[in-house]
Amino acid sequence: MKRLVLIIVLLFCFGPSFVAAQNPFLDQGKDNTETERSEEGFSPPSFLQKIPQFIVIWQKKLRAMMTTFGRDIQDQPFGSSFWLFLLLSFVYGVIHATGPGHGKTVVASYFMNRPGTVRDGILMAYLIAFFQVASAVVIILSIYMVMKTVSMSSFEEASPILYQISYSLLCLVGLYLFFRTVYELVSGKHTNSTGSNDPGKKGGGFITALAAGIIPCPGAAIIFSFTIIIGILGTGLLSMVFVALGMGLTISVASVVTIVSRRAMFHVTERNPKIFVVVYSVFSFAGSLLLISISSMMLLYYLR
């Protein structure tokens, strides 16, 4: 029991921090200048430096190319630009999702805590990607139908409530996983399984994916609204499928790596019950605490 408490305390000490962002050039009807910052350093915070610069630059290049192809599609709806636009949408999805966010932390923390197969991991990753893109599409289309225009300001105004719902649900999922882990460890039900006998596995994964996915992807929203502005709505809708397919691929990497690592570690240590319980605790508590801490910090930020 002492060991369990020590693991939880240690994981809390190394807990995550966050920076939230909103569009600084649009009026969201909310003061977005509240992010806590250090006044001491003059260099960019270290998290920026961890983002490979080429990912940012490639996104920029892709967006520029998509803009050009989008304009070509206006003249030639089914020319080569149409297919290139869809292809680049897929690539954009892959690269865009390599940046922070987009559910990688959620799938990783979920599968650190819960057992699963590679198929489960891919399914959950694609669910999150499709939910995030669908959420953006639904908001933009709703704005378009009501206002007859695609206002990104309205999109920004609609987003915070979805963030609040999402992070509330994710926090609840994290708490459920935390207490379930405590129950499993106390009652000795911690085993190395793929969870195939777990009746709540599919439902839990679906709820978690839905909770994470209702946050609309602003990257998808900007591309989709652009296609409406230049009058290629059909291509825009199709391109969103490709963006989601690309994003799902990247998120799948995070979930599959987590699932395979967890299974390998459990397999290596399951013969020694003392070590196994420590490994099981670290994986499970790290997963649930990660979900709780990230979602509660984000929730507090959006409730302010």
Binding site: F14, P16, A20, F47, I51, K60, T105, M298
Partner: peptide, 15 residues
């Protein structure tokens, strides 16, 4: 992995 989670939940959307 846990510590890496402090990378921000955001990334460039405007260039």
């Amino acid at each position: 992995l846990f510590i890496q989670a402090n990378i921000a939940l955001c990334h460039p959307h405007i260039f």
